[in-house]
Amino acid sequence: MKPAHFPMPAGRLLRFAGAHAVLLLGAAFMLLPFLWMLLTAVRAPDEILLGGLNPIPRSFHAVENFSAALQQAPLLRFMVNGVIICGGILIIQLIVAIPAAYALAKLRFPGRGLLFAAVIGGLCIPIQVPALPIYLALAEFGLLDSYFAMMVPFFLSVFAIFLFRQTFRGFPDEILQAARVDGLGEFEILWRIVVPSALPAIAAFSIFSIVAHWNDLYWPMIVIQRMDYAPPPLGMLFFANSETGASYGVLMAGATIITAPLVLVFLLARRRFVQGITMTGIK
């Protein structure tokens, strides 16, 4: 919001201040744990439990904590694993969900309503429900302890289908018909005409997906035993158990390193992300 060039009337000023106070409080509530993480990561071990929220540590211990974290745990390995898993999941999710959403939004075929109802139904089922059957199947085929095992339950994202379907529905039919008259096939219409104009929604979904799977602990913990395959959160868990014990400074330094890529991705894509979510449903 642009600052006003003339003095605000008292009532508006009060409402403005009130709204921002609430927002600030919310922001503080969300950000405090991260602040604490950052503070802990730069403090000396003896100061961690005493220092409170004093932002300036008495002795700056960041170098020691971060180098310890990097040396003691294969953080880079965890992050590479995270990138492979998130990237693999996202690519397959998009490849599956975009054509499915297009068909549900724009093509006429028998059973479309039923399929869409199934998608909505799918939205209501959490991963914990099919976890056991999937685990058993993976075990049966000897696929546990692999990247594939960590990615396979998420290849088909009903949320993505739903989100893209809502976005595609607003796309003018006339343009699709023009493309058909111009001789494009349905798949070419999809990637040449529809997808480029749905980029904000795709970016928004990508962030949702990456954040969810980068931070996911539940599923990797079930299917992964070996540290080589561990994504960041599971890696941190192994690391906390085995090596560091109670050295919180090092642990938080590791957590900071692991969280940083996500924050960077979000900051870079922030504008598109907000666009993508607010655009859904509006033509």
Binding site: P172, E174, I175, Q177, A178, R180, V181, I193, P196
Partner: peptide, 20 residues
């Protein structure tokens, strides 16, 4: 025949230009 094979051209009410 598909629209393409009919060798026709169409102009639409909202012009239907490809936006990007």
């Amino acid at each position: 025949l598909s629209p393409r094979a009919r060798n026709i051209a169409m102009v639409f009410q909202n012009y239907a230009l490809y936006p990007h």
